[in-house]
């Protein structure tokens, strides 16, 4: 195990090099990632034109939420990890990895961390520019930002997203093509995760239900925690649920991996 841990920095560095091999592709991706904030600014600006609040949000509050969501995305959202894992299984690229004395989950976690670090760097300029544009038009609610609440929630969200991604992509042991499954869950994450709108804008009974699902802890919870929108009690309860879901999906991924390996046929190279 200690040998495996010693190998992780090398895997991380490898992942970083892989990510930065196609810099323009990466830069374009990060530039486009900032556009939704501008779209939200225009749309919500129209919603708030004749009213000061919608639900518990002011215009500045909701735009801060969407701005923070960009940071949550940059830190937590897997980019191509799901399709890479699927390819490794389907195309037999798993064979050399299986020979290494390194648990596959740890190997992928190091690559995920490398991908997020590279993306965070690349997204810094376009996200800051788009934040600058929005903040010129209005004062964002930045004074309420809570790093103490936000950072643990961000780490939990990264762990949850990584473990859920691992579970989905490991289905490639049984399915020829997992892209439809991935996009279906992606749609659920967008809606029930608070990516499209803050979940506390939902009618209270619906909000109570989605708070129990894992998706809420991928985007809404870390964003709300960073924005300082959660009480101490709600933050602690949310953190327990978030890390609980992450642990559940990690255990599930472990069992899927074990079952999948029994089906896997290593052929050729």
């Amino acid at each position: 195990m200690s040998a495996a841990l010693r190998a992780l920095p090398a895997v991380f560095s490898l992942g970083l090099q892989q990510q930065l091999a196609y810099r323009w592709n990466y830069f374009l991706r990060s530039v486009f990632s900032a556009l939704p904030l501008l779209v939200s600014w225009v749309f919500w600006g129209a919603v708030f034109r004749e009213r000061a609040t919608v639900g518990n949000y002011t215009l500045a509050g909701i735009l801060t939420y969407y701005a923070v969501l960009l940071v949550v995305e940059a830190v937590c959202q897997p980019s191509d990890d799901d399709f890479q894992i699927s390819r490794e299984i389907r195309e037999g690229m798993l064979n050399p990895i299986l020979l290494r004395p390194l648990p596959y989950g740890l190997y992928r976690a190091a690559l995920f961390a490398a991908g997020r670090s590279a993306y965070l760097l690349a997204a810094l300029v376009p996200v800051s520019f788009s934040l600058f544009l929005v903040s010129r038009a209005m004062d964002l609610d930045l004074a309420r930002l809570s790093l103490g609440h936000g950072v643990p929630a961000l780490l939990g969200a990264a762990l949850l997203q990584f473990s859920l991604t691992l579970c989905l992509s490991l289905c490639s042991f049984w399915l020829l093509d997992v892209s439809a499954l991935i996009f279906l869950v992606y749609a659920l994450e967008f809606l029930a995760g608070g990516h499209v709108f803050p979940l506390d804008l939902l009618p209270p009974p619906l909000f109570a239900v989605v708070r129990l699902l894992p998706f809420a802890y991928e985007y809404w919870f870390p964003a709300a925690a960073l924005c300082g929108n959660l009480s101490e009690g709600a933050w602690k309860a949310g953190l327990c649920l978030q890390y609980g879901w992450a642990f559940f999906f990690m255990v599930l991924a472990h069992f899927i991996w074990k079952a999948g390996l029994r089906r896997f046929t290593a052929a050729g190279g």
Binding site: A21, W24, N25, Y26, L28, R29, S33
Partner: peptide, 9 residues
């Protein structure tokens, strides 16, 4: 750009 898959995004 060699790898331009992000343009779809």
């Amino acid at each position: 750009i060699i790898q331009a898959e992000s343009v779809l995004l």
